[in-house]
Amino acid sequence: MRHFNGVIVVFERQMVRYWRHKLRWLVALVTPLFFLLFLSVGLKHIQLPGIEENYLVFSAPGIILMTVLFHSMFTGVELIFERQFGFLKETLIAPIPRWEAILGKVLGGAVIGLIQGILMTFVAILAGMPIISFLGVIKAFFFLFLTGMASTAIGVAFAVKIHDTQGFVLIVNLVLFPLFFLSGALFPFTTAPWWLKFLVQLNPITYGVEGTRAALTGIQQIGFVNCALVLFFFTVVVVWFSAKMFETVEE
């Protein structure tokens, strides 16, 4: 148990901070709400090729996942603040391994992302996205959580290298938008041109979107187990990578 001490402390601190800023986080939901209410609802009656369900049902899971992806990755910015305000030193010389601190941060960022995702799921259901089963919802949350972990880890890795917030926001947006638009969240990739199809299948986030969509609505373009495996593997790799990056931090 002693070994996870650092993980727990870092995680707990982040949760305290999240709760303190809950209003700020609620406001952050406005952007994905725009997508959900104006794009998905607006295009609700568009008929997609090869998909029986309407566009709201098709796109809502991807937008929920996008919320997690964006919000988790931006928690990485906290590392930059911690460096600027000097608090990072407190973590760096604490008698805990660096990977514990990173794991704590990644879990914290993932939980924050997940909470945001759950809130979005409620809104989507209210807006008219039917869910196939309670178990499906649980499975979807599992995908959201993994995506949150991976996304936070990427954000943290950038924050290790980029020391100013403007730079961080710039770079992270540069990464997030392709990840989102090439994830098949907004269109069925099976009927897309070959190059787009290729890029979408290369994007690990696609497997998160697909898994979430399958779990929530039953629409399936890639096998569910494959989605889970790819996303899980991807998450492990990026978390490991960001822990390695954090090892190199001196101050």
Binding site: V9, E12, R17, G86
Partner: peptide, 16 residues
């Protein structure tokens, strides 16, 4: 300085 200003004094010490 090396504290978290968004936590209370007690919390800073407690997490430490």
């Amino acid at each position: 300085s090396s504290h978290d200003g968004e936590l209370t004094a007690f919390e800073n010490l407690f997490f430490h």
